[in-house]
Amino acid sequence: MTVTTAPENVKGDAATPRTPGNRWHSLTAVLTRVWLVPVAIVAWELGTRQAESFYFPPPSAIVIRMHELWFSGPASDLFLTEEAIENFGPSLGRLFTGWILACLIGITLGIALGRSATLYDYVNPIVEFARATPPPALIPLFVILFKIGTPMQLATIVYTVVWPILINTVDGARFLDGTYADTAKVFGLTRAQRFFRIILPSAAPKIFAGMRVSLSIAVILMVVSELVGSIDGIGYLILFKQQSFDLPGMWGGVVLLGILGYVLNASFILVERRVLSWHRRARQTT
């Protein structure tokens, strides 16, 4: 969005000038929302120190270990160590490649199914069955079908995360508003215009909801596939640290995945808000 000329917005901006009092207000607002996080971490620290369990190292030990293992590299490598580069890269690569492939397949197929009643009737039972199959159950098959390593892992990720995107896209494309469709027909929009300018944007809110769900599932499947058959990746690291009794290292992997999932979701919401700002704001005004 380049220019916003909404009078409401102009008024809104004018009504909230950046005064010290305001800044204080927003600071307390943030504090009231996140105060539980440091409290939980302190409780975790105290509890684990008290217990002195080998399996549950305190978070401070985990953070130190994470730093040692992965974030003490040279500045030229963004402080990443060799181990970090060799394992985070492939993990993220598989995650994004798998997710993007699933998005392309899911959206294309979803719109085709959503716009053709005949196709939908034929294919829907198959979709329902295929999506009910727990994807990890298919990992043994994928291991035989594809080479162990990236191809098999990609297959696992794509197969799993394509469903939420596909189902949501079908849903979004199927129930195109009648007047939208009439308008498109009356004004003789071309096939490409109908697809890119009408169907895709009107289904976009649902498609994005599916993509968001898929992104978090993709993280799970990335890890699962790395635990089963892999020679690198974050999931592999967790397994490797466990086998070498490096419990803080193992926990470090778990924490890293938590942060990764959180950051991915937050970034996605940020992008979604930008792309779908018309949707959010249109709903606010009507």
Partner: peptide
């Protein structure tokens, strides 16, 4: 129904 005949995006 102008609100559905104009495309909000």
């Amino acid at each position: 129904d102008y609100s559905r005949s104009l495309f909000p995006w």
